[in-house]
Nucleic acid binder design. Structure first.
Lengths: 332, 332
DNA sequence: GTTTTTTTTGCAACCGGTTGCAAAAATTAT
DNA sequence: ATAATTTTTGCAACCGGTTGCAAAAAAAAC
């Protein structure tokens, strides 16, 4: 079907090694030989088979890109940035959609069967043991949006979720709210846990402010909306820190539907600063997560890991900042 | 490092063929042999290397998933459905982000180097020659969201874009608008061209209705918003058919910002029915594209192509329907 | 023009599997 | 028990490449 190394060798009247060498950089080939081979190769439309090559080189340039956040719009940006970043580094993303799976075994086996050079886990919900399973099998791994630990098992790139919770709390305090709440995503998500921790931590320094918390079922619009509708029936707070923009937007829509004015009657602050948060008909005040930097840093780290698989695990945390839009009342 | 076929063979005290056969279904192995091999394999944690296998079987189960729509939120659903659908069929998506590239050569070469079994092009903007290039190289191909042609070169799965344009036109006519317009995406996008064609076609039957058209730079919120702001400066129409929801939402936000009431002062109908169109704070009337069916049908078709690569190209078009929300005034 | 050194080339083994073919073993028929 | 048939197994070649090593060729030194 497609031309092989041998075909080219025969056509050029040289050995297969010679052909192989002209397509391997850093190999010793004379100019004359190179020209001869390249001529034959282009006549036959030959290009080397990466998979066959990988058998001896033990490098496929395939990177497993594992995620379970296919419902959060922020991940469209994430996939865009990752695919471009990996491509630019000469790597190929093999996409794995975890859906609701939280056991790494299946993905792990599958990715090993495809001999991926490394794995990027892009998820703010999966626990550390998930990515650790990959490291235990000696696969270079980066956990993007992973949970920060002072001595991480694997490379973590993302934000300090606890700190982001504190930041949200400070913001609400600074605006003079007297009754605030945290609305998380699913309780099992590490980001939901950590953001809550920071929020509580900071809030506990202001005992005069009443606080409460609850959780939406998922990081989705509908879950945020449903939870907010529930809360509005009883005794709602003045302002909510929602653990994610998409939840915020759901909550926001619920509040507006119930006839509440934002930010006069009720306030919201989200986290992520996804594209839609800036859409004028949403206009959500939120904490910006620098995902461009997070992802390019993740790719860089992966490239470095491929060079040195023994590289010591590090955590790379990027600072967040509040993006003021229209869902929180002005500072007094 | 990881156990190989040979390791298992030695441990089980049998030939490598025997081991290979126990991991190939349909191969002849006695129960006794199978048990012996499976024991050794599980002790060593062996699982076969797909890439080595592919060298002889000529099947990698890798499918190239090529797209250039990484900015349209609808594609998050598309990726979710595709990755799950392919996984369920035992296939693996190798993601290619085209960015602005419209020449198939690079992707083609790369995908051939990885010996993908087939390619799915998921794009409503790429012209037929793009997917044809793959077919010319004998790669099984499905163009999802591709342009319909009565005798297609490759399998097309999607909607009849021309008809969807007519549908939008009928909807606006039915609501008694007297001055309407089409707002496309980039003029180079086949979907923008076809939807316009249908819109014009239907509208030309109502000469009493004034019509015009223009184009947003891209299928993005900002492009839709910018174009709408421009239109509002001169002499806007009563209602707009926007070629895509994300453009509609941008246009909608521009209209609201300029103090126009929707649907009283100005109407919008989009196309896609992406998740956010249903968000209560957007509430866009739009034409629903049945993407779940489109994608599962695309995957089915790909599976069928892998069985029979000579399969005659067909077009699978799914009907759309109008989803009434709040951006078009009621029928008189 | 020889000898020494450096560069280029081909041979052959290997990467981790699969598979056609024939021999060996197990079944079935006689 | 023997012959005929069917099933199971191993040998060896192959898939499409790479690479260590030694021989051949070219370049440099004498």
């Amino acid at each position: 079907m497609t031309a092989t190394l041998k075909d080219v060798a025969i056509r050029a009247g040289v050995s297969t090694s010679a052909v192989s060498r002209t397509f391997t950089d850093g190999a010793s080939v004379s100019d004359k030989m190179r020209r001869k081979v390249e001529k034959a190769a282009s006549e036959l439309g030959y290009s080397p088979n990466f998979l066959a090559r990988s058998l001896t080189t033990r490098r496929t340039k395939l990177i497993g890109l594992v995620s379970n956040n296919f419902h959060n719009p922020i991940f469209l940006q994430v996939f865009d940035l990752f695919t471009r970043g990996l491509q630019d580094a000469g790597l190929r993303p093999l996409l794995v959609n975890l859906s609701d799976e939280t056991d790494p075994e299946n993905s792990l086996r599958m990715l090993q069967q495809y001999s991926v050079d490394g794995v990027i886990v892009a998820s703010s919900t999966l626990p550390p043991y998930f990515s650790k399973a990959f490291r235990d099998r000696k696969l270079p791994i980066v956990h993007t949006f992973g949970r920060y630990a002072s001595s991480p098992d694997v490379h973590i790139v993302g934000i300090d979720n606890v700190e982001s919770g504190r930041m949200a709390a400070r913001e609400l305090v600074g605006r003079g709210y007297k009754k605030v709440a945290y609305m998380g995503g699913p309780l099992s998500a590490t980001s939901t846990q950590d953001r809550f921790k920071g929020f509580e931590d900071e809030m506990s320094r202001h005992p005069e402010i009443e606080r409460s918390h609850s959780y939406a079922d998922a990081y989705t619009f509908d879950a945020g909306r449903t939870e907010m509708l529930r809360l509005l029936k009883s005794n709602p707070s003045e302002a909510y820190f929602c653990a994610d923009d998409v939840i915020s937007i759901g909550a926001l829509s619920a509040a507006k539907d119930m006839g509440l004015k934002v930010p006069e009657d009720i306030g919201f602050i989200g986290l992520n600063d996804m594209t839609m948060a800036g859409w004028e008909n949403i206009n959500l005040t939120t904490i910006h997560q620098p995902i461009t930097q997070i992802i390019s840093s993740s790719v860089e780290l992966m490239v470095a890991m491929l060079e040195d698989p023994e590289r010591y695990p590090e955590a790379r945390l990027f600072p967040c900042r509040v993006v003021e839009r229209g869902t929180l009342r002005p500072r007094p």
